[in-house]
Simulated assay, not measured.
Amino acid sequence: MYVVLVTYTAPVSDVDYALPDHSEWLTKQYEQERLIASGRRDLHRGEVMITRPMSRLKLDAMLASDPLSVQHLASYEVIEFSASRTCHELHRINELLAG
């Protein structure tokens, strides 16, 4: 499981122009059950994504296909972690991690 910190590296106007394509990309990631949560960071400086468990290679490929990455508008910090506890709603994901 990963937390991905996305930091915008381009002017806000450039990022805002790319956000519709990025939003479509996010929708596809949710449809493919790769993401658990995502949202904008404060002060419009980037985003945070929490992924389901996957290989690091798969995550890197996923992030490389993000329009913000393709257009060189953001950088990504990836934090890998193993959830030892989750809220009830995420219990199924926690069981996957244990297996």
Rank of each mutant, 00 (worst) to 15 (best):
S38Q: 08
P53M: 05
D60S: 12
H44R: 14
D66T: 08
L90Q: 10
Y8E: 03
G99S: 09
K58D: 15
Q71Y: 09
Y8F: 13
R52T: 13
P53H: 09
Y2M: 05
S82G: 08
C87N: 12
Q71I: 00
C87S: 14
V78C: 09
V48C: 13
C87E: 12
V70Y: 01
S69R: 06
L26E: 02
G46N: 06
P20H: 07
R92L: 02
R92V: 04
E31D: 14
H72K: 15
M62Y: 02
D60W: 01
S23G: 10
T27P: 00
R34S: 06
V4C: 08
L19A: 03
R85G: 00
Q29A: 15
V4N: 06
L59D: 02
V6F: 02
G39Q: 05
Q32K: 14
E47K: 03
S38A: 15
A10Q: 10
L59Q: 04
I93P: 00
L68F: 07
L63C: 09
Q29K: 13
S84R: 12
T86F: 03
S65R: 10
Y76W: 15
N94Y: 01
V70F: 03
L97G: 11
E95T: 12
G46Y: 06
L63Q: 09
T51A: 08
S84D: 05
H72S: 15
S69Y: 02
Y8K: 02
I93L: 14
K58S: 14
E24N: 10
L68V: 09
T27A: 13
S23P: 00
A18H: 01
V4K: 07
H91Q: 15
V48Y: 10
A64I: 01
H72F: 04
G39K: 08
R52L: 07
R56N: 07
V78F: 01
E89S: 14
E80Y: 13
A64L: 05
L35V: 07
Y17S: 12
E47T: 01
V4H: 05
E24Q: 13
L59A: 05
D42Y: 11
E47S: 12
C87F: 10
A37P: 00
R34K: 15
D21T: 03
P20I: 05
D14P: 00
D66C: 08
D42V: 11
A10I: 08
H88I: 10
Y76F: 15
L35F: 15
Y17H: 13
S75T: 15
D16H: 11
Q71N: 14
A74P: 06
H88A: 14
